[in-house]
Design a protein around this nucleic acid. Structure first.
Lengths: 209, 209
DNA sequence: TAGATTGTTAATCGATTAACAATC
DNA sequence: TAGATTGTTAATCGATTAACAATC
């Protein structure tokens, strides 16, 4: 749980994963320190923006020196909540669910795949990622028994809302939504949308500019 | 090619696919007209925002009446460039590439899958979506012969930049990028990123708020 | 110490909201 | 016509940029 002096805007929050990525890469390349100017040029931001962003969370830099890459990376990791572990399930064991289940990065950052669910009898029983796909009939019992924090929704648009309602009623508080629709959920549930159709249409727009 | 009086900001552009989605749904439900107030409540925006957004492109509404759903939908479809067809290829025939290849919506909106490419001998020759997967060795010749507008990148992070460079040199002007890295491309090439890792980390952040 | 770079305040820019005359 | 709702201008809010004193 965070407790920051200033209220952090969604604009800043959306940049945090990028900071984490760039700092992790710098660390892998044995870069020990970086200035806001250098990081800005790398990330395509301005130095001011970076100093403003980081100062919403506290003073991680040192005047005349810059930022220590390792320390700043760890700080942002914690801000992102990646010092905790999360139990997650994937709903929909088709190609999209399958793709996500194989993302090694998720597990490495503490997002643990506990189960995959599908309605298709041909998919149920197959292995996806590290788990055997279960039937949706077993979902309620499984979520109650396993303290699931995050559900990754990879189901068709037609059933997206129904499934979202089902899992929020079971107490799941976070949804990563790949189904191309906006979900209606209680206010204590957070949804992050990955809308591939929207992204494609933004691209076709930009192609015509 | 657009020619609008006002310069349209990226903020507005990112909302256009949402307008298109909601208006398409309304049309399917035989709703003929809608006011900015009603649409705002549906989409979670304000009526002012909607009127400002739509007026960057021209006056589609009618005082005292509202907007004609079908007409507005068609107008936005055209603004998004979805009145044209686009030839596209998918690079990377793994689960992610496979998932995208099966998106019916893409074809329905005029984005035609012409080929899928992979380096894995076990994947080459299999059928993905509507096409047989080709080896990456055939990419150069294929792109030159088929006027490819859009490449959908579903390759591992490690080879993302290399492939992006290769396809932009072949003249591809649009990239839908699922590889979790920021691509460096010439300024006449447009890239739309779908960064699933970033979305997951935004979610874990929000879970801790 | 001198040089560098942060943290932070002030200025600018852009996006959202409010208000209302125009008009269907 | 009277009521409704747009298109558009003005006011407000928030985010980015600029500037510089603090300080390592």
């Amino acid at each position: 749980m965070h407790r920051f002096s200033k209220k952090v805007s969604m604009t800043v929050v959306k940049r945090l994963p990028k900071y984490y990525q760039y700092l992790s890469d710098l660390q892998l390349n044995d870069i020990e320190k970086i200035s806001s100017r250098e990081l800005a040029s790398l990330m395509g931001l301005t130095a001011s923006q970076i100093r403003q962003d980081l100062n919403s969370f506290g003073g991680y830099g040192q005047q005349g020196y810059g930022y220590n890459v390792g320390e700043l990376k760890e700080a942002i990791k914690e801000i992102l909540g990646l010092d905790s572990e999360y139990n997650c399930i994937i709903i929909g064991g088709g190609n999209m669910g399958h793709a996500i289940a194989n993302y090694e990065r998720f597990k490495r950052e503490g997002v643990i795949l506990k189960g995959v669910f599908d309605v298709d009898p041909l998919t149920v029983g197959t292995v996806v990622g590290s788990v055997v796909v279960k039937h949706m009939d077993e979902l309620d019992e499984f979520v109650k028994a396993n303290e699931i924090d995050i559900a990754i929704l990879c189901v068709p648009r037609e059933v997206g809302q129904k499934v979202a309602t089902q899992i929020t009623e079971l107490g799941v508080k976070g949804i990563l939504n790949f189904s191309p629709l906006d979900l209606d959920v209680p206010s204590d549930v957070v949804v992050e949308n990955v809308n591939i159709t929207d992204s494609l249409f933004t691209l076709t727009y930009l192609l015509g500019e």
